[in-house]
């Protein structure tokens, strides 16, 4: 009885002082663990190819990409700086999963339209990988006649080049992410035997600091030696390889790289890379992206 009394009194009187700040915290909902993996890659492009990343909902990304001429083209060509190919692109996030995009490349005056859909997100307790689907149509808009004699395209169907890819990536650690990209390119006007070029890409990034990562990317194509003459005019093509760095500057991502393709879209870097990276046919290039938000609701809510 006496013990109970002491216990109860002690309990009653000491309850208030015992409610220190940590106990106060217990009145709040317990901490929720982070569910989905974010920032597998810094941008929507690894180097040439797409990454699993999509533009966030109501966000517009403006992309400016350049590839210069070959470094081994000599001082007369200022080591490639004299000739540049350019692609300007816009991509918009309908929502966090679906992106629509349009781009215009100087190579063959090509307009590319694409859709990207984030099918699966890597999650701590869920999927081990992120999967994004990519589909595009690259429309060649260069003139029908190269000169008075040669007709390049007989109908609009010959100008359409379709690409389908499945992007599968895993963020292994804060620093290291890897992506495997199987896909096909269906050519509207094949120069060589194959109309369909199948390929598998492998690429990854390693963060060397909080804001800088080193990237590499290689696409192996399932083409026999005899079928590799897929470039316009029937020139021989090579598998595309690229190394580069991403530098993130808060709202922007800069990508600087070396690769053996002057084309910056799938149809071009998978079927028109006429340089052999390992023989020194290397082009310097960069991608710059700038993000604009059209999320008025959050903007209004967050206004100071």
């Amino acid at each position: 009885m006496k013990q109970t009394l002491i216990f109860l009194l002690a309990g009653g009187f000491f309850a208030t002082p015992a409610l220190a700040q940590d106990d106060l915290l217990n009145n709040l909902d317990p901490a929720k663990p982070k569910t989905t993996t974010t920032a597998t890659f810094k941008g929507t492009r690894l180097i040439n190819g797409h990454t699993v990343e999509t533009v966030r909902g109501k966000t517009l990304d403006f992309l400016i990409s350049h590839r210069f001429g070959r470094l081994n083209s000599g001082v007369d060509n200022f080591y490639g700086m004299d000739e540049a190919t350019i692609r300007l692109g816009l991509e918009y996030g309908i929502n966090d999963r679906l992106t629509v995009g349009i781009g215009r490349s100087s190579v063959q005056k090509t307009v590319d339209l694409y859709l990207k859909y984030r099918l699966l997100r890597q999650a701590g307790q869920g999927s081990p990988v992120s999967i994004t689907l990519f589909g595009s149509d690259a429309i060649v808009t260069e003139p029908t006649r190269q000169n008075a004699a040669a007709v390049l395209y007989y109908n609009n169907g010959e100008r359409q080049n379709w690409t389908g890819q499945v992007l599968i990536a895993r963020k292994f650690s804060e620093k290291f992410s890897l992506q495997v990209t199987p896909g096909i390119v269906v050519l509207g006007k094949p120069e060589a035997a194959p109309k369909t070029v199948a390929s598998v890409g492998i690429g990854g990034r390693y963060k060397v600091s909080k804001r800088v990562s080193v990237n590499a990317e290689y696409f192996a194509r399932f083409l026999s030696e005899a079928d590799r003459f897929t470039a316009p005019g029937g020139a021989k093509t090579y598998n595309v390889f690229a190394v580069g760095v991403d530098i993130e500057t808060g709202g922007h991502v800069f990508q600087l790289h070396f690769t053996n393709s002057q084309g910056m879209i799938e149809k071009q870097f998978l079927t028109q890379a006429t340089g052999d990276f390992f023989k020194g046919d290397i082009n310097y290039g960069f991608n710059i992206s700038r993000t604009f938000s059209f999320d008025r609701k959050t903007k209004k809510a967050a206004a100071w």
Binding site: A20, L24, K32, T59, G251, T291, D295
Partner: peptide
């Protein structure tokens, strides 16, 4: 007794620019 505790979950900050939010 005037004890006060405030807990702010960092990932719940909403930025108009989602890339900025990620960074």
């Amino acid at each position: 007794n005037g004890d006060v505790v405030v807990r702010v979950p960092i990932t719940e900050f909403q930025f108009p620019n989602k890339l900025m939010q990620e960074h």
